[in-house]
Amino acid sequence: MMTKQVRYEALVKALHGDLYRYAYWLTHEKQVAEDLVQETFLRAWRALDSLKDEKAAKSWLITILRRENARRFERKRFDMSEYEEATITDTLSVTTEQELENHWLRDKIAKLPPEYSEPLVLQVLGGFSGEDIAGILDLNKNTVMTRLFRARNQLKEVLESEPVKRGVYNG
């Protein structure tokens, strides 16, 4: 029989990455994302017995994390335009052409309105279906699909308007 500790560790190992990324795209700050993930897993530990279906674990954790994030705003209201200067950038790892492009696109995704980026992150990163996302975000499915459409549409438009050369090329 699996003990609570073993279940918890399995849960952490399997899902901490997804959860961290989700928290990051929600908050745009590494430290805040890390704190959120820690809070989420601590709450998850306390309520672990209520998790009956291991398959639902991911959306369960994401729901806890969103609630924690909302609580963070109750405590202290952050100015949402603060991340304008791309605190999200990870300049150290910008090495290859691919990384450079990722870096640029990350900036664009971060600038999407949160109501568009959130379903996109859930769909692309979390692998959730439209119904799942509607459940997690407490929206109806059509709204979710419309937002996903707009999110991709906007990204495509910025990509098409992007300069042919990005970044600094020397020589």
């Binding site: 990324r21 990051y24 492009e101 696109l105 990350r106 995704i109 692309v124 990204l155 495509k156």
Partner: peptide, 29 residues
């Protein structure tokens, strides 16, 4: 085109997860 775009989005969303996070979570608990 859109599938390609989606692939790029996916790549971009895969921000690196700190190596220590997993152990830190277990330790804290």
């Amino acid at each position: 085109d859109i599938a390609l775009l989606d692939e790029r989005i996916k790549q971009a969303l895969q921000i690196p997860v700190p190596d220590y996070l997993c152990n830190k979570l277990i330790l804290r608990q």
